[in-house]
Design a protein around this nucleic acid. Structure first.
Length: 463
RNA sequence: GUCCCCUUCGUCUAGAGGCCUAGGACAUUACCCUUUCACGGUAGUAACACGGGUUCGAAUCCCGUAGGGGACGCCA
């Protein structure tokens, strides 16, 4: 039997980084087993689901390179089918109508809470004849859950997990307005879509018990479950803006590469021996559920940064230049010309070993593109002493005479000059750097000068 | 409150009863390389939550305790 998995986000906001990890694992699992990876949008909550959210999620998946098979399914569009199944359950005696009002149930829960009792539906309509139905009240349909025995979920990650059926109540399957609840819709859809492995977040583990009961009530095969541990913030609490952003789009905006995010996410709760840098092809070959750990992981921006730095070093220079361009444009207040992007591309080999993110590349590279006077930081200003300026002036004269203005030629010139004057190379290279870049920190300065060209270099030196 | 799950360096993790003097990566410290900053290289600091068992032998199996997380909606 070939594997069919799915990712089922609810479109009530952005694509959460934890959701992205779930999607990644499903995707990898499908690729590894040569199965199918389906996408289902859980939009049965009409009040909170928005088309914008759907688009955001799709965009996030596309950015991460996670493609799915077939069309994305809208869960809401299948509500007729959900109702049909609920009616079948009424017919086969595994579900019943409940006429209790929300207020009534609220009061029931409040009372249970004050008495310190578990908060569960008490089954007040479970065995009442339909004739008792109060007129004019639209009922919900509830599962007639087994009241004795136990329910077991054989989880591929957590192992065999059992709960006493007395702990579970008769949950709502179909709301009074005829729409399905999440619990019900998930089971019906997963069954109809032929899902063989339900791989999702740990927060659904206890839901799995109730879902198993629905499968059994309908006499359907129960899929394999795999509940992935949560991703926590750096403080060990729920992931939030403070401790590692929850929104996938933020990672793009902060200059992370999708392959880096994928690699980092893969290594959260999953390992293959000592391997850290794992290509997607390799991940597909290696990934399986038995490598998934059981304990939750904290999100660590520092490590993500180092993984990102690795992928930046490997990335194509042109691609990096194009990714950095919008960030530079924002700083400069205008887009780069094609020639400037070319220059950026040429500068990239010296830029990329120095950056952890595209944003850092951009910040480091703006100095190449300043047309007017170069903004200069205080440390750089201090380097340009009168003495240093005198050296720069003399060096400028010699550079003017250079037959070829290449970085090698410039460096040779500087070295010869330093030796001639009994100076250390740093004594003249640092002021040169300050004049050309406005900073004491930059890529190798002779390369910078070569790229800037003779005219621009001398212009900056003259100021 | 009830139920469920989890617990190895600061962080992510390797570890399937002897291969563990607990390994790797990130971070951190020192040194080397060096025109700055990085990259790279070398070395170092650093962990089996606690308490009981089982066993010749336990990070690994069992039981408790503590801590953390999750679920308990006509949300998903």
């Amino acid at each position: 039997m070939s594997s069919v998995v799915r990712f089922a986000p609810s479109p009530t906001g952005f694509l959460h980084i934890g959701g992205a990890r779930t999607a990644l694992f499903n995707w990898l699992f499908a690729k590894h087993h040569k199965g199918k990876f389906l996408l289902r949008i859980e939009d049965t909550d009409r009040a909170r689901s928005t088309p914008e959210s759907v688009q955001t999620i799709l965009d996030g998946m596309a950015w991460l390179g996670l493609d799915w098979d077939g069309e994305a399914v809208s869960q809401f569009s299948r509500f007729g089918r959900h109702a049909e199944v609920a009616k079948q359950m009424i017919a086969n005696g595994t579900a019943y109508y409940c006429y209790a009002s929300p207020e009534e149930l609220e009061a029931m829960r409040a009372e249970q809470k004050t008495k310190g009792l578990p908060q569960r539906y008490d089954g007040r309509w479970r065995d009442r004849p339909t004739g008792d139905a109060p007129p004019g009240v639209k009922p919900v349909i509830r599962l007639k859950a087994p009241q004795s025995g136990e329910t077991t979920v054989d989880d591929k990650v957590m192992g065999s997990v059992t709960v006493q059926n007395t702990q579970l109540d008769d949950m709502v399957l179909l709301r009074a307005d005829g729409t399905p609840t999440y619990m019900h819709a998930v089971v019906v859809d997963d069954h109809d879509m032929g899902i063989t492995h339900v791989i999702r977040g740990d927060d659904h583990l206890t839901n799995a018990f109730r879902q198993v009961q629905i499968y059994k009530a309908m006499g359907w095969d129960v899929p394999a479950f795999a509940h992935l541990p949560m991703i926590l913030g750096s403080d060990g609490a729920k992931l939030s803006k403070r401790h590692g952003s929850p929104a996938v789009s933020d990672y793009r905006d902060r200059g992370y590469l999708p392959e880096a995010v994928r690699n980092y996410l893969l290594r959260l709760c999953w390992a293959h021996g000592d391997d850290e840098i794992i290509s997607t092809a390799q991940a597909i070959e290696w990934f399986d559920l038995d490598g998934v750990g059981k304990s939750p992981a904290r999100f660590d921006f520092v490590k993500l940064g180092s993984v990102n730095a690795h992928y930046i070093k490997e990335a194509d220079d042109r691609r990096l230049a194009e990714l950095a361009e919008p960030f530079i444009a924002r700083i400069l207040g205008q887009p780069l010309t094609l020639a400037q992007v070319d220059l950026l591309t040429q500068a990239m080999p010296d830029l990329k070993p120095r950056a952890q993110t595209i944003v850092e590349i951009a910040e480091m590279a703006v100095f190449y593109f300043h047309i007017g006077p170069l903004p200069m930081d205080d440390k750089a200003k201090k380097l340009l002493t009168p003495e240093a300026k005198q050296h720069m002036a003399e060096l400028a004269g010699r550079m003017k005479a250079l037959p070829d203005f290449t970085s090698e030629a410039i460096e040779a010139l500087f070295r010869a000059y330093a030796e001639e004057k009994g100076l250390k190379l740093g004594n003249i290279a640092q002021p040169f750097r300050a004049a050309l870049t406005g900073s004491t920190v930059s890529p190798p300065i002779f390369g910078v000068a070569g790229l800037l060209g003779r005219e621009e270099s001398l212009r900056r030196l003259a100021v």
